[in-house]
Design a protein around this nucleic acid. Structure first.
Lengths: 221, 221
DNA sequence: GGTCAAGTGGACGAGGTGCTCCACTTATGG
DNA sequence: CCATAAGTGGAGCACCTCGTCCACTTGACC
């Protein structure tokens, strides 16, 4: 898990420092203002010219990718932890709770997670791994009879999107709200006395429209 | 109720036609592209100059308010219908389902509903009425023992925000997803064997950060 | 028809993005 | 210490947004 990505080696000492500061500042700003904080603001906070910023990260998307790389990794290891739990249902709940908390606490993460740039190959791979792991987790939790049988894979996306809708001015409030939403949903996911549901929606994170992030805008007609 | 607002009377016939076409076009565009469609695009689609648009609606916000006025009204009457239902729980569920469907089908409505401009007095009043009505509905549903006792008023906001997170390219998919989410949540709202929940979050639609709408941006530091 | 206020459209200003260019500075290694 | 390549910052470009201005057109009334 290289916190220091390959692209950062061979830099001059000062350049290296600047790069690190940029990433750090960007992480903070994204976290509490969301992905649409201007590049200029990031540069200013990092006490760096915009040119410097753009030489390190040729595009805003690349900066976002870099900033959230380890968060995505954390996501994957949350799933791994959950798979390691002897009680599948407990693992299932814990995984969902953790990811949703990450999402609630960090506005940028939520946006990055949902927008998830299709061309960022490594993120794509992480995501694939996470999805695989979650599928296994789901299978096991169903096998113990604690997760309702009609829980669909896509319901995870549903949950992530719904949780992504919880955005407030204060991170604390968002976290509290998210926790409660997740508690409600987990209770609905339990098998007991489950009433039939409407059919699962074919949700693909792909066709989620990014709300404030770097997205493909349809040109106006 | 006046589909023809006071501000539209006394206009010259052609002006009146233009105004109507603007509102109609805006409604369509907002519905499937969200609130951030440019004013120029609306004007173009209505085959009208921007100046015309701006004379009728001095600000984008005023246009949005006008466009969604009847939808907000519809919301209120959904609550009224629910209150008229002899079975409070059925009314409760129906109201939530209907509003969430409106939200899922119309991107602009969702954004307008959440952003809900604080200075649009009449909308504020409608909203107040809706909240009052819903509070009564909640009380009754709890009284019959079908709605869990720890359901909080703010959980409605929670639900609306979560449902607002369900945004996809296709309205059909969004609707299906929303329906499923709502089914999950309603099942969690039932009183039976309800496990304790984390405390309700003090959600106020006020401090929701508008995602793509006309919002108060914090100026960059 | 003629008058004229009401109505109109497109150019434009102000302000905000992402990103580039280029003259200048500075760390590095000999 | 110095040569030099690597690094830098801020002006500036292209583009997009909301909203305004003003010379021109047109419907309404006599």
């Amino acid at each position: 898990m290289p916190t220091v990505p390959d692209t950062a080696v061979g830099l001059r000492a000062d350049a290296r420092r600047n790069r690190d500061r940029i990433v750090e500042v960007a992480r903070e700003l994204f976290a509490d203002r969301g992905l649409d904080v201007p590049m200029a603001a990031i540069a200013r906070h990092a006490r760096v010219g915009v040119a410097t910023l753009y030489r390190r990260f040729p595009t805003k998307e690349s900066l976002v990718t870099e900033v959230f790389a380890d968060q995505f990794e954390a996501c994957v290891s949350v799933i791994d932890d959950a798979l390691a739990d002897p009680d599948p249902w407990r693992g299932f709940c814990a995984a969902i709770e953790k990811v949703c908390t990450m999402q609630a606490v960090d506005r940028g993460f939520s946006a990055a997670f949902i927008a998830a740039f299709p061309d960022a190959v490594d993120i794509e791979r992480e995501r694939h791994r996470a999805i695989q792991g979650f599928a296994e987790l789901t299978r096991r939790a169903k096998a113990t009879g604690q997760l309702r049988a009609d829980f669909a894979q896509d319901d995870l996306v549903l949950l992530v999107m719904a949780n992504g809708g919880i955005i407030t001015e204060s991170a604390e409030v968002a976290q509290a709200a998210s926790r409660r939403l997740v508690a409600y949903l987990l209770s609905a996911f339990r098998a007991e006395q489950a009433e039939p549901l409407p059919p699962p929606a074919p949700l693909n994170l792909r066709d989620v429209l990014p709300s404030g992030g770097a997205g493909h805008q349809v040109p106006a007609t």
